[in-house]
Design a protein around this nucleic acid. Structure first.
Length: 878
RNA sequence: GCCGGAGUGGCGAAAUUGGUAUACGCACCAGACUCAAAAUCUGGCGGGGGCAACCCCAUGUCGGUUCGAGUCCGACCUCCGGCACCA
């Protein structure tokens, strides 16, 4: 056994031992409580980045902590291995996407293993393998059967740069989520999954998980689903049998309507195009063209529109209203038409101002309502969007907005021109991709039978070996005739296969259930295994997946529940989103050009405080210092492999956990990681100094009286146990490291030497060191294992050896004497020492007797004394 | 524009949830060891004043509540995220 800390050697040793002993292999075991620790699975790009290291270090700390606390822990990992980069590689370098992906998995698996992450590798899965994607197809067919998967013609979001269709989520803000280029529109037949069927459940079930999820994720999901309660109202079109239906949340404002504004794509508009003037049609076309242009989210689009000449009748007032086309009304939301009430809506107000339409106030602030009865409509300077009391609304005058809403909705329903309605922002999930590297959609098209699902026995529909991948946007599968041409499962006549593949978010919507039963050939997973392990106890990943992935995964679970695979509503009880890892970048200040330097190439000059005065490159250029997201192009990325090679996996992981709270951004500072190494070495040196003594010493001091040093050390030890345990329970990883550093400092400061120690001191050091090592395991497992074996004289490892998290004993953590702060008028003036648990009167007496206090209050009157037991005495004087 | 979150040393950050602000680490300074350097160890390290014991000021700004406020309340400033014509 080496007495010098040599990370590489012990890390390789323990990684081997863990693998050989199957230390992290999980199985259903009713004798222990289960714990499912999950981290978001990586895309196999070929290289781990520091964001992965942070995500997985945090997850591993939780997994180890729960293991040491006696849980049966499942901690799996796999690969989100379908997706575009594999096709890009195929286009650029002519490689086979499968080979490229498999090679990347091999290299990244090696990286994860060198970090010593405690995964159950026997459960590893990869989405691109037929054994996995077979079940994507199985689920698709189930949803098809249930009417949850359907096909329709639609405008899709199209990224010209990536030559790919994108979901609404992926095209959020008019920019491609992957490459950031503008998104355009294209018309295609697409498969959809009916997420909207679960909109209410997705929204309402959040109440049950709210306490375990970050507030910002809950909020974003609520916004995303965007439920809105209101009413549909039908307006008759004058001189026609047609009606135009609007959605409104403010039916109470209907007497203030001055127009109906429809989307340019509205069916009523298309149907009447022949009737419109050329000017009107030109404007309609212009609006459609403008809308299909890439949207720039910085500039607000100016309101535009035109009066079509059509008229509608307000069913409440009987008033005739012009029907306009407006660029601010979207066909995709509500009914594609609105009643414009400029007095009480910002957008309608702006529109009315621009086109000089009448603005009529029909809602008043309650205290002004009476005046309005006698006055004519007045022009508002700004729209009044609050609720209030109805005015200029005939029969409804004087009613509150709330009452009017429900009564007017009922009125509309009774008279057959409206009904209560709920709309959602959430859209159905378009899953079709004109791509090769994804799960084929298991559908066959037959001239005789139409759209036919592939029978479940015939799954998987496998991807062909060779397909021409050109990146041009047509599905490569259409060009592989042995795939494309097939027989109809129903009539055996000639048929063709669906050539689109599924969005990769399908794979990640249910992967964490496949870990439970990765080799099942009959079903996606066994119900009883799922019942044992799920829901996931703790899920950890980046908050870039706060909406898409986490809404799809929740949707998928609800579908699985309805199929009878699981029995719960929500798959994830607790969610943690870790912050980004950012790097330092040094720009060339004189040219501002793209000349970047890594930290090692830079000479930094600081003032006596340590503040950076200037930074200079090795070639003498003056550099500007910036903290930015790590990326290859900025040259500020850090290679995890390099860190592990230089400092070791333990130090790398320890630093990542210690450097910042887990949900904060983490600035990578190479000097910081050296601090982590120093700490580990400090622990190491102490343990080896004591190794031989500890091996023969007992942790039980027996009846021997504790020396003051031993007592103090035990106090610090048990205080630390509590701090570390509480922190880990609440998912804090920086403060427990600080606590362990303090304990290490205390071990040195105790100045107990192995040769001179008494029996009780040896026992105290033994207990302290043992606790420290065990608590260190979630943060630096290799070092902890090596030190544990050093003092126990056994190489079997903590898992096999049944190591447990140290047990906190409050009676040992408490000290007899406590320092009490003494304040005068809230200002700290002195500190006194008092017995723990001393009575308030006693504390007051001691404080008043303190010489410093006596001097301070000598010429003043004591008005009041506040005593906080075990904490402070505050003397109020005048 | 709307909705969130956050402002504490040179830096990353702590603070028992209203009770001794700045723990722990990084950087920096000094000392010990050394021929020397590295490593390690010891000490210092918010600002100002004083020989000193000590005193004054300080948690973005201004006010409030309280015996006592980084923490609670009100207004404002700044930064970071999210959403953006959702009717």
């Amino acid at each position: 056994m080496d007495e010098k800390y040599f990370a590489k050697k012990i890390e390789a040793k323990w990684q081997k031992k863990w693998a050989e002993s199957g230390a992290f292999a999980a199985s259903e075991d009713g004798s222990k409580p289960k714990y499912y620790q999950l981290e978001m699975l990586p895309y196999p790009s070929g290289n781990l980045h520091m964001g992965h290291v942070r995500n997985y270090s945090v997850g591993d700390a939780v997994a180890w902590f729960k293991r040491l606390k006696g849980f049966n822990v499942l901690h799996p990992i796999g690969w989100d291995s379908f997706g575009q980069p594999a096709e890009d590689a195929a286009v650029k370098r002519g490689v086979n996407p499968r080979d490229w992906t498999e090679e990347n998995i091999v290299s990244m698996r090696g990286q994860l293993q060198r970090l010593g992450l405690s995964y159950d590798w026997s459960r590893e899965i990869a989405a691109h393998r037929p054994e996995y994607y077979k079940w994507d197809q199985w689920f698709f067919l189930k949803m098809f059967e249930m009417g949850l998967a359907y096909k329709r013609k639609t405008q899709v979001n199209w990224c010209e740069h990536d030559q790919a269709t994108l979901s609404n989520e992926q095209a959020s803000g008019g920019l491609c989520w992957r490459c950031g280029n503008p998104v355009t529109k294209k018309e295609l037949e697409q498969w959809f999954l009916k997420t909207t069927a679960y909109a209410d459940q997705l929204l309402d079930d959040m109440a049950a998980i709210e306490s375990g999820w970050p507030a910002h994720v809950i909020k974003r999901q609520r916004d995303w689903i965007g439920r809105s309660e209101g009413a549909f109202v039908d307006f008759k079109v004058k001189d026609s049998e047609e009606k135009v239906r609007v959605f409104t949340t403010r039916i109470d404002t209907i007497y203030g309507a001055n127009a109906i504004v429809a989307a340019a794509e509205h069916p009523l508009i298309s149907a009447n195009k022949a009737e419109f003037s050329t000017e009107v049609n030109a404007k309609i076309d212009e609006i459609i063209t403008e809308r299909n242009k890439p949207t720039d989210r910085e500039t607000e689009i100016e309101k535009d529109g035109i009066d079509t000449g059509l008229k509608a009748i307000n069913p409440f007032s009987g008033e005739e209203l012009p029907i306009w086309v407006g660029n601010y009304v979207m066909m995709e939301y509500g009914t594609g038409a609105v009643m414009s009430v400029p007095a009480h809506d910002e957008r309608d107000f702006e529109f009315a101002k621009k086109f000089e339409l009448p603005i009529r106030q029909v809602i008043s602030e309650p205290h002004l309502a009476h005046e309005h009865h006698t006055m004519h409509a007045l022009a508002l300077e700004v729209p009044f969007t609050d609720k209030g009391v109805l005015v200029h609304s005939d029969f409804w005058n004087g009613k509150t907005s709330e009452d009017a809403k429900s009564e007017m909705t009922k009125h509309a329903a009774v008279h057959g021109f409206g009904e209560a309605a709920t709309t959602y922002r959430l859209r159905d999930w378009g899953v079709s991709r004109q791509r090769f590297w994804g799960s084929p959609i298991p559908i066959v098209y037959c001239d005789a039978c139409g759209t036919v699902p592939v029978p479940i026995e015939e799954l998987p529909v496998e991807l062909p070996e060779n397909a021409p991948i050109t990146g041009t946007g047509e599905s490569p599968l259409a060009k592989v005739s042995e795939f494309f041409n097939t027989k109809c499962p129903k009539c055996s006549g000639p048929a063709t296969r669906e050539t689109d593949t599924m969005d990769t978010f399908v794979d990640s919507s249910w992967y964490f259930f496949r870990y439970l039963d990765p080799n099942n050939a009959e079903k996606p997973f066994d119900n009883t295994k799922a019942a044992y392990w799920t829901p996931v106890d703790q899920y950890i990943g980046g908050d870039d997946h706060a909406v898409m992935h986490l809404i799809y995964a929740r949707f998928w679970s609800k579908v699985m529940r309805d199929i009878g695979l699981v029995e719960f509503d929500e798959p994830v009880h607790r969610l943690l989103t870790q912050g980004m890892v950012v790097g330092e970048t040094f720009y060339d200040d004189s040219t501002g050009k793209r000349k970047y330097f890594s930290q090692v190439d830079v000479t930094i000059e600081r003032d006596e405080k340590g503040k950076i005065i200037s930074a200079t490159g090795t070639d003498g250029t003056v550099l500007k210092h910036a903290i930015e997201r790590m990326s290859k192009s900025k040259g500020n990325g850090v290679d995890p492999d390099e860190m592990v090679e230089i400092y070791g996996a333990d130090a790398t992981r320890l630093f990542v956990l210690f450097a910042a709270p887990v949900d904060n951004e983490l600035v990578w500072h190479e000097a910081g990681i050296e601090g982590a190494v120093r700490f580990l070495q400090r622990v190491w040196r102490f343990v080896f100094k004591w190794r031989d003594t500890l091996r023969s010493a007992t942790r039980d001091a027996g009846t021997e009286e504790l020396t003051p040093a031993a007592k103090k050390l035990l106090q610090k030890t048990h205080q630390t146990i509590k701090r570390v345990e509480d922190a880990l329970d609440t998912l804090q990883f920086n403060t427990p490291v600080a606590a362990m550093m303090e304990l290490t400092n205390s071990l040195y400061e105790a100045q107990i030497e192995p040769e001179a120690a008494t029996g009780s001191e040896k026992a105290a050091v033994h207990e302290s060191v043992n606790a420290l090592i065990t608590m260190l395991t979630p943060f630096a497992p290799h070092t902890a294992e090596e030190l544990f074996s050093a003092i126990h004289g056994s190489d079997e490892g903590m898992i096999v050896g049944g190591a447990k998290f140290p047990v906190y004993r409050s009676e040992l953590a408490a000290s007899d004497e406590i320092e009490i702060a003494v304040q005068i008028n809230g200002k700290l003036r002195s500190r006194i020492s008092a017995p723990a648990g001393a009575a308030n009167a006693e504390l007051e007496r001691l404080a008043m007797a303190d010489p410093k206090i006596v001097e301070h209050i000598s010429d003043q009157t004591v008005v009041k004394v506040v005593v906080v037991p075990n904490r402070l005495v505050n003397i109020v004087v005048r």
